[in-house]
């Protein structure tokens, strides 16, 4: 220890450095968390009325549950939108 550095100055110095490091670490963690965004995806589930066919695709504006969207490729019955739901995507850096 240098001769002109007393114990109280040393404690004060350590506390100041710790405070600066803590503040920097906290802001780094917060910035990292804000960069990581979760991108959700809306899925439209389409099924045949006779329940022999189903598919999933991305949601399109105008979709709603109960909407007839075409004919079943297997039985020619009506294809209906049976569900619309959101799946949480993977975390990605924005």
């Amino acid at each position: 220890m240098p001769p002109n550095l007393d114990i109280f100055t040393l404690i004060l110095l350590i506390m100041t450095i710790s405070l600066i490091l803590y503040t920097l670490l906290l802001s780094f963690i917060q910035r990292k968390a804000s960069r990581e965004t979760v991108k959700p995806k809306i899925i439209t589930k389409i099924s045949c009325m006779r329940d022999d066919y189903s598919e999933e695709r991305d949601f399109k504006k105008g979709d709603y549950v109960g909407l007839v969207v075409g004919k079943c490729p297997k039985c020619e019955g009506n294809l209906l939108i049976t569900a619309i739901y959101l799946i949480r995507g993977v975390k990605e850096k924005g």
Binding site: P40, I42, I43, A83, I84, Y85, L86, I87, R88
Partner: peptide, 9 residues
């Protein structure tokens, strides 16, 4: 109040 999630479905 948001788009229905898979868990709610």
């Amino acid at each position: 109040i948001n788009t229905m999630t898979k868990e709610v479905y």
